[in-house]
Simulated assay, not measured.
Amino acid sequence: MYSSLLMILGALVVGYMIPVKHPSALLTIRRLSSWMLYLILFLMGYGLAFIDNLSQNIIQLFSQSAVLVSLLLTFNLSALYFVGRYLAMPAAEPIHKKAITSLRCLKNLRCLSRC
């Protein structure tokens, strides 16, 4: 299980490290990755079909999935809170100049020369 996870994550890291600028190559990569996703999902379902006593093991699969989802949500939301609290961007300085809108220009004919 960990070897397949390592292969997937390794390919993901290597894929992010290779810069691709050509638009047609990016389109081809997007199409291939979409088809590869369907292939991976098919193979996962195919492997799931060969599990002995699937009806008895399904509760264990659901409990492991629930624990994983709850841990991911907890850590992601807490990281989001701490990043927003301690690494917040400085507030933008307000612009004191009034913007000239077209509606304001129509109301005030003297403004038409500036619009």
Rank of each mutant, 00 (worst) to 15 (best):
7 M>C: 08
9 L>P: 01
10 G>C: 05
10 G>V: 06
13 V>I: 15
13 V>H: 07
14 V>R: 04
14 V>K: 04
14 V>M: 08
16 Y>F: 14
16 Y>V: 04
19 P>A: 05
20 V>W: 03
20 V>T: 01
21 K>E: 09
22 H>M: 06
23 P>V: 00
23 P>C: 02
23 P>E: 04
23 P>S: 05
24 S>V: 13
26 L>C: 03
27 L>G: 00
28 T>I: 14
28 T>A: 15
28 T>F: 13
29 I>V: 10
32 L>H: 07
33 S>V: 10
33 S>A: 13
34 S>W: 14
36 M>E: 08
37 L>Q: 13
37 L>C: 12
38 Y>A: 10
40 I>S: 12
41 L>V: 11
41 L>Y: 09
42 F>A: 15
43 L>K: 06
43 L>Q: 08
43 L>S: 06
44 M>G: 07
44 M>S: 12
45 G>W: 00
46 Y>N: 07
47 G>R: 08
48 L>F: 13
51 I>C: 02
54 L>T: 02
55 S>P: 01
57 N>V: 00
58 I>K: 04
58 I>M: 02
60 Q>K: 12
60 Q>H: 10
60 Q>A: 15
61 L>A: 09
63 S>L: 14
64 Q>N: 15
65 S>E: 08
66 A>L: 15
67 V>C: 02
68 L>S: 15
69 V>N: 06
69 V>K: 02
70 S>Q: 02
71 L>A: 07
71 L>Q: 09
71 L>P: 02
75 F>Q: 02
76 N>G: 01
77 L>Y: 04
77 L>C: 00
78 S>I: 12
78 S>M: 12
80 L>E: 07
81 Y>S: 00
81 Y>N: 04
82 F>V: 13
83 V>R: 10
84 G>V: 03
85 R>D: 05
86 Y>N: 03
86 Y>E: 02
89 M>A: 14
89 M>D: 11
91 A>N: 03
93 E>N: 04
94 P>E: 03
95 I>Q: 14
96 H>L: 14
96 H>Q: 08
96 H>W: 06
97 K>M: 07
97 K>A: 10
97 K>L: 09
100 I>W: 07
101 T>A: 01
102 S>I: 14
103 L>G: 09
